[in-house]
Computed example of a mutant assay.
Amino acid sequence: MEYMSEEGYNKILAELKQLESVDLPRVREAIAEARAQGDLSENFEYHAAKREQGRILSRIRFKQRVLEHARILDRTILETDTVGLLSKVELTNLANNAKMTYMIVSPHEADIKEGKMSIKSPIAQALTGKKAGDTVTVKVPAGTMQLHIDSVTL
């Protein structure tokens, strides 16, 4: 079981519907068209479409499993003063005074470009359970970071 936000759940559900109702029928049509051209042994379009179908079917199965094991987290029961899942955390890197803001989310919702960090990342693991004003030391692939938690909100 994996907890996630309602927004993340709905995004995965929408992607699944897109795969099932648009992408899969499109690739099945491409397979049918390529098959109609005759000799399949040297038909590049047929083999490419079959590979694409396999990729889409695999993606559909993965998304179905994610949704099957997902539980939407009720924000009203979450603590607002400590870092946890769905917390928005403002940080300062003490080495260079760089300010960062991240939302801690499930691994399936993580997107650093959108400011969403996986709860399973080293930084989020170190921050979990901490409060505003705390300083944490985190081992990351590039070395060690010292981060000061400026604020925690939901």
Rank of each mutant, 00 (worst) to 15 (best):
S87Q: 04
I60R: 00
E90A: 13
E42M: 08
A36Q: 13
L78E: 05
F62N: 02
D74V: 10
K63P: 02
T76N: 10
Q53D: 04
R59I: 03
Y46R: 00
S87V: 10
T92H: 06
L85F: 09
R59F: 04
I77T: 15
I72T: 11
R35P: 01
F44P: 01
Q64S: 14
L94S: 10
N43S: 06
A49G: 06
S41W: 06
D81C: 06
Q64C: 07
A70K: 03
A49Y: 04
K88G: 02
G38A: 04
L94K: 09
I60F: 06
A70P: 00
L67C: 14
I60H: 02
R65D: 15
L91F: 13
L57V: 05
A48K: 04
F62W: 05
N93I: 15
N43R: 00
A70T: 02
S87W: 01
L91N: 03
D39H: 14
A34K: 02
N93P: 09
E45D: 09
R71K: 12
G38M: 06
L91C: 07
A48E: 12
E45C: 08
R71M: 11
L40P: 11
I77V: 14
K63C: 10
A48G: 08
Y46M: 00
E90P: 08
H69A: 06
E52H: 06
R61W: 09
L91G: 03
L73S: 01
S41Y: 10
R71S: 09
S41Q: 08
L91V: 13
F62V: 03
V83D: 02
Q64N: 13
S87E: 06
D81V: 11
L91H: 04
S58W: 13
R65C: 09
E68C: 00
I60E: 03
T76H: 04
A48P: 02
T82G: 06
G54M: 14
R71F: 12
T80V: 07
S87C: 05
E68Y: 11
A36C: 07
S41H: 05
N93H: 07
E90T: 15
R61C: 05
R59D: 11
R71L: 13
A48V: 07
H47C: 03
K63I: 12
N43G: 01
L67A: 10
Q64A: 07
A34N: 07
K63R: 14
E79A: 12
E68V: 01
K63G: 03
K88E: 10
K63V: 07
N43L: 11
G38R: 01
G54C: 03
G54P: 04
E79T: 12
A36S: 14
L94F: 09
V89H: 04
